[in-house]
Design a protein around this nucleic acid. Sequence first.
DNA 1: TCCATTGACGTTTTT
DNA 2: CGTCAATGGA
Length: 728
Amino acid sequence: MDVSHLLEELNEPQREAVTASDGHVLVLAGAGSGKTRVLVHRLAWLIQVEHVSPLGVLAVTFTNKAAGEMRERTGNLLQVSTRPLWIGTFHGIAHRLLRMHWKEAGLPEEFQILDSEDQQRLLRRIIRDEGMDETQWPARQAQWFINARKDEGERPQHIDHLDHPVTATWAQVYRRYEEYCNRGGLVDFAELLLRAHELWLEHPPLLDYYRKRLGHLLIDEFQDTTAIQYAWLRMLAGQTGQVFVVGDDDQSIYGWRGARVENVQHFVRDFPDVRTVRLEQNYRSTGNILRAANALIAHNQARLGKELWTDDPPGQPIQLYAAFNEQDEARFVVDRIQQWIDSGRRADEAAVLYRTTAQSRLFEEYLLRANIPYRVYGGQRFFERTEVKDALAYLRLLHNPNDDAALERVINKPARAIGQKTVTLLREQARAAGLTLWQAAGAALAQGVFATRAGTAVAGFVRLIESMRERMQEWTLGNQMQGVIDESRLVDHYAKEPQERMETRFENLRELVNAADAFTMPQDDADAGLNELQSFLSHAALEAGETQGESWDDCVQLMTMHSAKGLEFPLVFIAGMEDGLFPHQRSVEEAGGRLEEERRLCYVGMTRAREELFLTYAEIRRMHGSENFCRPSRFIDEMPAKLLQEIRPRMATSRPYRPARPARAARTSGVVDDSWPFRLGEPVLHPKFGEGTVLAFEGSGEHTRVHVNFPAAGAKWLVLAYANLQSA
DNA sequence: TCCATTGACGTTTTT
DNA sequence: CGTCAATGGA
């Protein structure tokens, strides 16, 4: 069989990885080195050349997007249906296993997935019920504790250091939380993985079946695997499974949420005869960008070692802009994007990357003002919106009324006279009897525990849910969705909100009905024995939808460096290159390699750029309400100076204070902004207020306003045309 | 039950 | 400074 099409587009190391036979493979794939291509070609190679059955391959990724992309590209390459291939996220695969073997996993057939918001609400509930002080024991921290334990594969009984009072308290919360979840058939994200692991651990015949069936395992983004994921993988591989992992230790940026880079080293240790292949040829960025990124990452100690190179020309130097303050930074970035667009390039080729989400605000403001369309990644997703989750909660109750998280959410939405008092009573009853809220409501009604009014209200709610359950059984999914929205009168609840808010909520609910209407159950779910409703609800939890529903067309891309991983753009700005912000103060202070992770994040950010890379920082930045003098990021100093070009000489005069900052090498004189009559930071003279310092500009033409700080009169916004300012 | 004021907090996020 | 959540008065 002619297999040249599988190999001809590959370079030597890529080919070596794709065609490796017998044994395990570790591919250390640098940024932009064709990682996905290698995975896809490997998959195709196994099937077409080694004649492995498509049913015998499992390919695991971290995100749904990556899984979808792998499936699509594999389909294109193989020109056959990818249906039988098991490609999915760790969570998706674990979920499927639990659905197929719910009995063995000790779950009710109708178990539901809790997303992190549900989880947090439930924990808040438990902490209150336990009579704990919420300010001292925040639900967020409980969530962090429990998920971290689960990521390590630990149940409450496995927890060490119970003599430590804090640990003991959280362990107790963990225990209570488990009880709640087990009663209601609720499974959070971390639980999916842990249960799937335990499923095999406790059912050797089952494990044996999967070991025999899945002889080839492919894992993407291996540096991001957690302890439990690695344990799960090892277990599945056993002595016979062939494992092919792809990862980059230099791009490990999720250590803070349980990812373990060490797994890359462990892999070589734990599996026999691992063949390691390095992909170092980069097909994305210019030579200068790669040289700077290489130099930066070389400052990390704990590395397997890798150096990116390219056949392409060096390109432009990396441009460094020292902004006066954060406004000036945003202004500069937006100006440059405007120039890019004016030169005939597209807006969506430009990306602004930053360390913290809060930084997006100013860029949005300036882009809005400049009339440049933009898109912010990482906002709320469709299935996470309040109204969508409310409506879904009703649907969940139809499916499983013992779902406490769903019941609590909507029992008084819209207001049905079931107030705080009644709900508290209900919870106490449930807790005392070890029942779910739904069961407790039934029992309390039978025993006449409630006052008359409350009793009527609760009975009304119970009847509502029961009647919907009975009547909607055979309805289509779309009709069920519309049905619960109508009959719950959920819209009453939003009707009193401000007009605009209300309209978006209604719009989203219509959209949700459309989504339910259009939903077709994936074959995988059908195979796992799910009904359509189960499948839809799981889909909503596991794939919360695109970050922003809006159109994708020709928008400047704003996102954190974390969200930028895996993407690439011709023009990239990394903003806020200041010590304390990036690397972040918290990471610098914390021991244990946090700084190295920040450096890797910077490396990830830089290697997103194809053609041009700008680094910007502000000398003064307003943070938490007060002005801070900033030192440029240490990462800038870790790049070779000859690859950097400073765009504007730092202002030599006019600042009242000088930040403590080591003197930097001589600067090339660059472009001075000439669109305004004064420079930022320049001293000016006002006839009435005296001498002041220019802080910012706003607007253009005769509407230009200027922000000037007068030591005598304070900071003022003045209309430039009338202010009669002179250079001092 | 609802809105408005007050207060605490401030890194990164997918599933 | 800006956001979000919780509390308290009408």
